[in-house]
Each structure stands twice: as C-alpha cells, then as structure tokens.
Computed example of a mutant assay.
Amino acid sequence: MIPHHTLTGPDDAPVLVLGNALGTTTELWREFSPPFRLLRFDHRGHGLSNAVPGPCTIEALANDVVELLDHLGLRQVYYCGVSLGGMVGMWLAAHTDRISRLALVCTAAWYPDKTMWDERISTIRELGMEPAADAIVSRWFTPSFSPAVVSHFRSELLKVDVPSYLACAEAVRDMDLRADLAKIDVPTVVIAAAQDHATPPDVVRHIADELRDSDLYIVGDAAHLAVVEAPRTISVILDGHFWSD
C-alpha cells in the first residue's frame, strides 16, 4: 500500500522521512521545519491514507514505507520516527538498506508488560475510540501544555479508522525488535522525553545502549509527543545529527 504523503522542501536538500505516532497524522509535524526535503506520510487508516482490512505487523507498516520510497524513486533517505514511527524506522534500518541515518523519538523496542495495550484494545473494540481518547491523549502531552493543541490532536485521533487503529495497536503490542537493534549499523540519534510515561527515558535508553553507533538526548519539558511540545529543541538535535559528516 502506498500511504498518503506530502513531499516538500528544497529539491537539492536531503530527504527526511517523518514517521508518525499511533493515532496521529502528518499534523504531528506542523510546527517542525528543519532544512530538509520533508516526506510526511500517514499510517494505514490514519489521516488521508486508505484503511487496509485485517491485522498488520510492524514489518507490514515498514513495507508500506518501502513501497512509498519506490513510488517516489528514492533509493536512500534519512528517517525520523516517533513511537510507532520509530518502530517502523528500526525495522527498516535493520532489514533494508534504504535508511542512511536514523532518528528515534520516544519509542520502544519491546513492551514486556502488555496489560495497558490489552485494556486499550479491548475498550476501543467494545466501545469505540471516544471512551479511550482522553486517556490516550493525556499520555501525549504534559498537563500544562496548550489546551487548544491538545484538543486538536484529540479531534484528529477520533478521525482515525477504528479497525486500522486496532490493527496498528496490536502490531505495537506484539512487536519485539530487541534482536533487530544489533543489525542496525547506521548512525542513529535517540531522543527521550523526561515526562514521557508512555515510553519513559529508561525504555528509550535501552535502545541507545544496544545500538552500535548512537547518541542519546533527553528533552526536559515534554511528554510522549515531544516533537509537538519541543519542536525547536528536537530540530536542533536532528540538524546536528543529519548534517554531520
């Protein structure tokens, strides 16, 4: 499946692919403007991407990105992913040669305790997205962050195709990328957020510790969607990583 996408920025700049968190769309990057040619895309059933019936895996979501790169004639790219987008990035870097530099933001390689995911999936399957929305969004932002922005992202979450959300949530719950970390040999920057309760800094630090070539940064005043709460800080980190020789 070729996801909905936009490709913007200077034609002579490196292409940076931006992978979204579960339940978010390309809106995740609306305050984000590093000096790259930015390829934004929506996961299955998110934003303007078509829903794909049935279950999926991180591998399947990563192969959607490969199809997109092939469609655009892009051989190698930089890649930055948040949460689910980061999981997709890890798989791509471990199993393909399409990623030359990688950035992983507020993500995990494995969830040993799947209780939260089981409960969320059960609630949404039985009652729909609305009863779960507040709990999901409360993990995305710090309590003092802009209510208007929080409300906007909640509204975007409610537009996601529910079966697609559930399929992606099950893919996250069931994934185990720990063995893949040893296969990643591209320079990688790993970014955690100090107030992230969805993927706490220790979880993110484990990824950095297992990679061959990585740097770890912890952003202070942000939660899970740190690219929304601290876009300038993260842009500086990414600029330093992707423009380095």
Rank of each mutant, 00 (worst) to 15 (best):
residue 64 D to F: 04
residue 40 R to D: 06
residue 192 A to K: 08
residue 100 S to R: 15
residue 209 D to G: 14
residue 97 D to Y: 07
residue 9 G to P: 11
residue 126 E to C: 01
residue 65 V to S: 08
residue 200 P to Q: 02
residue 76 Q to K: 11
residue 93 A to D: 03
residue 130 E to I: 07
residue 178 R to V: 09
residue 6 T to L: 10
residue 182 A to L: 11
residue 166 L to R: 06
residue 37 R to H: 07
residue 218 I to H: 09
residue 176 D to F: 00
residue 190 V to T: 07
residue 243 W to T: 15
residue 74 L to T: 01
residue 133 A to Y: 08
residue 104 L to P: 06
residue 157 L to T: 02
residue 98 R to T: 09
residue 150 V to L: 11
residue 159 K to W: 07
residue 238 L to A: 04
residue 78 Y to G: 09
residue 132 A to H: 05
residue 125 R to M: 04
residue 201 P to I: 04
residue 209 D to A: 15
residue 154 R to K: 15
residue 30 R to K: 13
residue 6 T to K: 12
residue 142 T to K: 12
residue 219 V to S: 09
residue 112 P to F: 04
residue 178 R to N: 06
residue 146 S to N: 15
residue 39 L to G: 07
residue 207 I to Q: 10
residue 28 L to E: 13
residue 84 L to T: 00
residue 123 T to G: 04
residue 170 E to F: 01
residue 130 E to M: 05
residue 9 G to E: 06
residue 208 A to F: 12
residue 213 D to H: 14
residue 102 L to H: 01
residue 63 N to I: 13
residue 133 A to L: 09
residue 199 T to I: 00
residue 218 I to Q: 14
residue 54 G to A: 11
residue 187 P to I: 06
residue 66 V to F: 05
residue 134 D to H: 09
residue 182 A to G: 12
residue 163 P to W: 08
residue 66 V to E: 12
residue 156 E to N: 08
residue 215 D to C: 14
residue 33 S to L: 11
residue 129 M to V: 11
residue 85 G to L: 00
residue 149 V to C: 08
residue 160 V to M: 07
residue 128 G to S: 04
residue 105 V to S: 05
residue 99 I to Y: 05
residue 2 I to S: 00
residue 16 L to E: 03
residue 167 A to E: 00
residue 35 P to N: 05
residue 141 F to I: 12
